[in-house]
Amino acid sequence: MSNEQLINDLNYATDLAKSGQEAPLVGGPFGLMWGVLLSATLTSHWAIVSGTFNLPLDNLWKLWIGFAVVGSIGSAILGSKVKSKPANTSTANKVEQSVWQLFSVMLGTVWVGIVMSMIFGSGTPQLFDFIVAMGFGGQGLAYAHTAKMSHNKWLIYPGIASFVACAMSMALHGHVELYLFAGITTVFTVVLPSLKTMGLENAK
């Protein structure tokens, strides 16, 4: 075997390895679906609590149960589509899937804790305000980790924005405007980054 032939073969292998390593993130549609849903739900939450919609407060339960049901169905539908995409199992995509799954587990456990506190303890509905702050904090962590572990370094910016939103959410704790703030901020921290991710995926 000649040097030239060997080097050609190695270049071919390098190109293939790089195409796998630099594979685009495929989770954009998930982010877009959850981002639009979350933004609409948070804004509706604000509209109910502030009296803008002129609806009784017990509609909040229906709103959030609807959010969970629609989100779960949407995830199931998108999940089967994303699974069949090429490079779905690249390291970057595995990291992204893993951090967002753990993020939802974290929020779920906080939700269970709050409900238990309300049933068995002295918890008040205001405890749910913490979920908003924790959501933004977890989101920041997920973005920052994905940025570090993949070629998508730009994700650090929505990560930083999410951390700032986390601090702002704690500052707004107990104020009804928290939910309006969160609804609007979600457009910038989830919807727009998801659209960019989808654009980058389509470009490849």
């Binding site: 190695l10 071919y12 292998a13 390098t14 390895a17 796998g20 490079a87 199992t89």
Partner: peptide, 14 residues
């Protein structure tokens, strides 16, 4: 060589 290189980055691959 190509198969191994690609699988080293994307595992599993269809």
């Amino acid at each position: 060589l190509g198969i191994m290189a690609y699988l080293s980055a994307v595992n599993p691959a269809s």
